[in-house]
Structure formats: structure tokens, C-alpha cells
Computed example of a mutant assay.
Amino acid sequence: MKSKVEQPIAVICTFTWVGFICAISFMEAWLKFRAPGVTLPIGLGIGRLVFAALNKVEWVFAVAILISNIRIAKKISINPFYIIVVLILIVQTVWLLPALDARAELYIEGKTVPPSNLHLYYAIAEGIKFISLSVFGTKLFKLKNG
């Protein structure tokens, strides 16, 4: 069996996006605090910058995938796994990241911050986004005989 890719840009964007999630959300986010000399305020400042940049890059990937889909299908025919990813991205952009950013700012200013589940929600969202992107990307390959 051979596989065929009708949307190479979407495939590239999808799996590059998966790589960003793995490298940043699953590695950088917690490893930076293990580096010598990185205090909580410094680590939080770095995290704010990195996750703001990641969010912008994710929107570029999401739009590029949508444009690829429209260009190839000549209409919007979106996979439900892509919809899940975009919905998570919207929630992260309008609620989770601003709320986490505000908490980080309070820590950096030396203020007491009450306990919160925001980091847990973000981690769960990243896990779901990772799985959804992986399934979506895999479905971009069409198998055919011969």
C-alpha cells in the first residue's frame, strides 16, 4: 500500500505543531526550573514569553491548515479533530493564558497567589491537543493499493 498526501502544507504544519507542543509544553515548561540560578520569578518570566510566542505560532499553523484545506477541497471540509484543536486554542488564548499570565505577574511582584487548577487545565488541554493533532495529521495520509 502507498500513502498519498493531498495537503502537504497541512501535514507539515500539523506535525511541526505536534513537535512544538512536545518540546515546549511537555519539556521546556518544567525543565527551565531545574536550571541552576533560575528562580521562580525568572522561570515564570521566561514561561510567559515562551507561551505567548507559542500561542502566536499555533494560530499561524491553524490558519495555514485551514487555508490548505480550503485550497485543496475548494470548500471548508474540516476534520472534527481539527475543530477540537481550534476550540482548545481559542480557550487557551482567551482564558487560560491570560489567567496564567496574571498569576505569574503576581508571583513576579512577590504577592501571595491563592491555589489554582489553571496549570492542570492547561496541561490537560495540551494533552488533548497533542492527541487530536496527531490523529488529524495521520488522517491527512490517504492509503491506496498499488
Rank of each mutant, 00 (worst) to 15 (best):
L100A: 00
V18R: 01
N145F: 09
I42T: 14
L54C: 08
P36W: 05
L120V: 13
P98Y: 07
L143Q: 15
L87R: 08
L44I: 04
I88G: 01
L143F: 14
V11K: 05
K75T: 08
G43F: 00
V57S: 03
L87Q: 09
F61C: 00
R103N: 11
T16F: 05
I128N: 02
R103Y: 13
P41S: 05
I128Q: 05
F15S: 02
I70C: 14
P36K: 06
I21H: 00
I90G: 03
N145Q: 11
K2M: 14
G45D: 03
L49G: 12
I12D: 09
L54G: 01
F141Y: 07
K129N: 06
K144N: 13
L118H: 10
Y107V: 04
I124H: 09
P80W: 10
L133M: 07
F20C: 00
L49Y: 15
L87I: 15
T93V: 05
T16M: 09
A99K: 08
K129F: 01
Q7E: 14
A35V: 12
K74T: 00
D101Q: 11
Y82H: 10
Y82W: 12
T16W: 04
I131W: 13
M1I: 12
H119Y: 12
M1H: 13
E6H: 13
G19W: 04
A99Y: 10
F141R: 04
F141L: 03
W17T: 03
K111W: 07
D101H: 10
I128T: 06
V113G: 06
A35S: 15
A64G: 00
F130N: 10
A29Q: 02
L120H: 09
K4E: 14
F130M: 12
I21T: 06
I12P: 11
I42R: 15
V94F: 04
G43M: 03
A64P: 00
T39H: 03
I76D: 06
G110E: 05
F26N: 12
Y122W: 15
S3R: 15
Q92H: 00
I24V: 11
T39I: 01
W30E: 12
G127S: 06
L49T: 12
I9A: 10
I46N: 08
Y107W: 09
A99F: 12
L143E: 09
I46C: 13
F141V: 01
S25F: 01
F136P: 14
V86S: 04
K56P: 03
E126M: 07
K32P: 01
K2C: 09
E109F: 12
P36G: 10
A52E: 02
A53K: 06
V11I: 14
S134K: 06
E109M: 15
E28D: 15
W95D: 07
L96K: 03
V5C: 09
I83F: 11
L54N: 05
I76N: 08
E58Q: 09
P41W: 05
C22S: 15
V94M: 02
A64C: 09
I124S: 07
V86E: 02
K75D: 03
F141W: 03
K2D: 08
A35K: 11
L106R: 14
V91I: 12
S132W: 00
R71M: 14
F15C: 01
S68F: 08
L143G: 10
R34H: 13
P80R: 08
F20A: 02
L54R: 05
T39E: 01
I78K: 00
